[in-house]
Each structure stands twice: as C-alpha cells, then as structure tokens.
C-alpha cells in the first residue's frame, strides 16, 4: 500500500474571534502572533493513513504545496509516522484557489511511486473550499469518496464509510482512488513522541518546483486562477446577552429555568 496524504499548513483556526484580524490589502487573514498548524482534517487524514499502514504495511507520503515554512508541517507528519515528505515550493506558483492547487498536487503525485490511495482533508480549515479532493480525482482520473470517517482494505479495493445526509453509507472503491477525510472518534490525530520528533528532523524532505513537475505559467501563474477575491471582511455581531443573576451557581441555575418559562421558551 502506498498512501499519499495532502496536508496544508494554515493559520491556527482556534484563534479567538477577538484576536482575528484581516489584512485588507492582501485580502487575507493577518497572521499576527497566531501559529501555523496543519489543517484539522488533514491531521485526521494522516491518522487514517498511518493506521492503515500499521494494519497492512506499506508507506505513507505526505505532500504539501506551500512556503519553506510548510516544512514544519511535513516534519510533523513524519513524526506522526509518514515515511516520505514532499514540499512543492509555492514561490513560483499562484494557487489562490483549488483548481491550481489540485493541478500542482496531481502533478506531484504522478511523480511518486504509484499510489493506491490519495487522502485529503474534507476542507482546509481556513478558506474551506472543500474542492481539492474531488479535483484531484478528476485530475488523476481516479474515483472519489468524500466525507470519509474510516476506511479499510477489502480485497483488491477499499471499503469506505462516508457520511451522507441522514446517516452513513458504506461503499467499495477500486484502488487507486481519492478520499477526503472527516473527523471521527477513531481518527483523532496521535501526538508524536519526542523521540519521533527528533527522528523526523533528520529525515530528508523532497522539494519540487513547478518546472520539475512540468508545469508552466499557463498552468500555475496568476492567470490560471479561476476565481478572484473581491473583498474579505469581518461580519458585525451585535451582542444582546442577558446575564442571569444569582448568589452562586445553583441559584443562577434555578433562575435560568424560571427565566426560560418567563420568556415562554419552555
């Protein structure tokens, strides 16, 4: 089994709304002091891949399209248990929307040893386009299964659960295929041990530029982007919270019940 996992380094999505600022010129979030992390669903995808490897053997390759800083994300993936890491240097790539991202990642995946499975997160956790998985399937000519909490090998193919409206659907897909991963209680990302982090720091990271992937300006330049960001703004929220009074928690709790009756909510 060779599993490729696409991970994106994003601004920590947990920063509080109060600390969140926008750079109006770049039309992007102002990183401020927030740290960069791997997208939460990408971590779930890594966990799924590593568990699959632990059960059936094989190798896991983590890929990212990003800046030199994104090497940190790859090191984290290596520490979790990925075997190889590939950085596609974004310096000469203008990936402002998913069609360019998917084209670049597909080209990089074609350069790897043949893959059995490509995993992505269901959405990146920042711009949340939720497109790259499906677009990769189109680019690579592979079947696609979205919203996957868990999967396993079944014969020559794979058996995947996918979330559907009103329940879960179990499907079978041939290998190779692409799946986008969603969170589940059995794919919570593991925390790497110090020893694994040290090991990961010594592992090599393969770096490709668009040229090495056979991509030119027509494919990855500014003009290749199919979307344009016109505006980015923080919507206003007006708070209208009425706080329940009380000497202590218990009194507040009882008062809350009375308040709900008074407001005819219950």
């Amino acid at each position: 089994m060779h599993i490729a996992v696409c991970i994106k380094q994003i601004l920590d999505p947990e920063i509080s709304p109060r600390a969140f600022k926008i750079d109006p010129v770049r039309k992007a979030a102002d990183p401020g002091t927030a740290s960069l992390v791997i997208g939460p669903f990408d971590l779930n995808a890594l966990e799924v891949a590593i568990q699959l490897k632990e059960r059936h053997g094989g190798q896991v390759t983590a890929l990212t399209l990003g800046s030199d800083k994104a090497k940190e994300a790859l090191r984290r993936a290596l520490a979790m248990g990925a075997d190889q890491a590939v950085l596609i240097d974004e310096t000469q790539v203008s990936a402002k929307e998913p069609s360019v991202t998917a084209r670049v990642l597909a080209a990089a995946i074609r350069k790897l040893d043949p893959v059995d499975l490509v995993l992505t997160g269901r959405q990146s956790g920042e711009w949340d386009f939720g497109q790259v998985g499906a677009l990769l399937a189109e680019e690579l000519g592979m079947p696609f299964v979205p919203f996957v909490p868990r999967l396993d090998v079944a014969g020559n193919g794979l058996r995947l659960e996918r979330e559907a409206d009103g329940g879960v659907v179990v499907v079978e897909a041939p290998r190779p295929c692409v799946a986008s991963v969603t969170n589940a209680n059995d794919n919570v990302p593991r925390l790497p041990k110090v020893k694994d982090i040290m090991m990961a720091n010594r592992k090599p990271i393969t770096v490709y530029g668009p040229g090495e992937l056979g991509l030119g300006a027509a494919e990855v330049g500014d003009e290749a982007n199919r979307l344009e960001v016109l505006d980015l703004f923080i919507p206003e929220v007006k708070s209208e919270c009425e706080f329940i009074e009380g000497e202590d928690g218990a009194e507040k709790g009882a008062n809350l019940a009375r308040k709900l009756v008074e407001r005819k909510v219950i």
Partner: peptide, 14 residues
C-alpha cells in the same frame, strides 16, 4: 464564510 465564519469573502469567477 471563511476562517470558520470569522470572516466573509466575496469572490467572482474569471
């Protein structure tokens, strides 16, 4: 919505 709903983006296709 982007950034988990902390911001809104207006986009147009080219």
């Amino acid at each position: 919505p982007v950034y988990g709903g902390k911001a809104m983006a207006k986009l147009a296709a080219r």
